[in-house]
Design a protein around this nucleic acid. Structure first.
Lengths: 229, 229
DNA sequence: AAGTACGAAATAATATACGATTATTGTCCC
DNA sequence: GGGACAATAATCGTATATTATTTCGTACTT
């Protein structure tokens, strides 16, 4: 559930290009290639045992997803995210994820809810001896349950792209903003109850959106505070 | 205002690849290449006076935007949109466009509003001797005024992609659903008044979203009706 | 010693070439 | 006359080769 997910099925499975795409994407999302890392076509091509053409193609696809930045005659680097970019990404994600969660909600089964609640319990547990990496992974698992049933594949794809983008930063907000992780767990439980109660789509959408906005706000306050100190 | 718009500035301007991308995209959006049209790499390459490699790259970028469909060892064709796809696209657009409009609203100036109102007056005029092509173009101009000020470039880009996708179908809903064009013009005026009155972001977002949902619903009813007749 | 100009190395961008896969057409057999 | 199979053509996928651009180091000048 944690691995890279692409909703729109590619009709090019098995091609070297696809292979390169998957391999490089995985390295970025899992953190082997960190932001700023310089992606040299020839090097990657050699690593993967293919020529540069498919690699180039793969990297341009990743550019379209925002995971790498490409500059003419210069090359590709793994995208960093400055505070402004972070804001844009989180804001966009709050919108599409909120909508996806709302559309998904009526299709979520009782076992799904139970599974999400179990994950959230682990998260609460994780608050003691805090492990940001594990917490972040659990957080993704939790939200996956909520939005993965979304019947609109385009919308779901946008959600995945946002998550991938955030995942490419290893640093989660939870690491930087004390108390946010705790609040987050509580909001999760509230979200689950809302869905269980069969609340309307609007209510669920707003709750899901606010949940993410709250994370963004926490980050911004922290950033602002650090700036003025 | 009507032409193809890409928000995220490409750092590859001037390259053959970029040139091919722009050329092919324009041909699709303006309707030279209609849905189902077979995009043969060698042919396009010759037309543009470049080799196949940049063309291939361009086409894969268009694939990522949903404008073309690529199948392994078969080739690329301009994407059609079946009813299901149309639903997904419109639904997604209703979400991102609604949010973009809400974020844009506080930044819209009085002259902008006046311009939008003028466009809408033209649309109303256009209702007499109905010209779907012109009406559709004016419709895009109108909405551009509303969302183009959106300060979040990622979100704005998603809106542009949705519009491009719809533009690649020449057929607008207005052509097929009698009365929808008329309703649309009225909803536009209501939207403008809402923005002028300084309404809250939520109200504007919902209104903008419903405006698009109404177009979708009109289409679906029509489609459903035709099916059962 | 600092700055600049030049050149070599690295790398990207594009072109060309070839093998692989799929579509098409024609022919043979029933 | 129609269907199956084979040959051919069209087109894609990838590799290799060439060209253009940038970067970095070095030597030369002031």
């Amino acid at each position: 559930m944690t691995e890279t997910a692409t909703t729109v099925p590619s009709k090019t499975a098995g091609s070297k290009s696809e292979q390169a795409y998957t391999a490089v994407k995985a390295r970025i999302v899992e953190g082997t290639y960190t932001p700023g890392y310089r992606l040299v076509l020839a090097k990657i091509a050699e690593d993967l045992g293919v020529s540069v053409v498919p690699v180039r193609e793969a990297i341009r696809r990743l550019e379209a997803e925002g995971l790498v930045t490409f500059e003419r005659n210069i090359g590709a680097t793994v995208s960093g995210i400055d505070p402004t970019e972070y804001l844009y990404t989180m804001q966009t994600l709050s919108i599409v994820e909120g909508a996806a969660t709302a559309l998904s909600a009526p299709l979520i089964s009782a076992p799904d809810i139970a599974r999400a609640r179990a994950v959230n319990a682990e998260m609460r547990d994780c608050l003691q001896h805090f492990d940001p990496v594990r917490f972040t992974r659990l957080n993704q698992d939790f939200h996956s349950v909520l939005f993965e049933q979304c019947p609109n594949p385009h919308l779901l794809d946008l959600v995945h792209r946002g998550w991938n983008r955030l995942a490419s930063l290893r640093s989660s907000t939870f690491r930087f903003v004390p108390g946010r992780a705790h609040d987050s767990v509580n909001e999760h439980e509230a979200l689950l109850q809302l869905i269980e109660s069969g609340a309307g789509a609007d209510a669920i959408e707003q709750a899901a959106r606010r949940h993410r906005s709250a994370t963004l706000d926490a980050y911004l306050q922290q950033a602002n505070h650090q700036e003025h100190s």
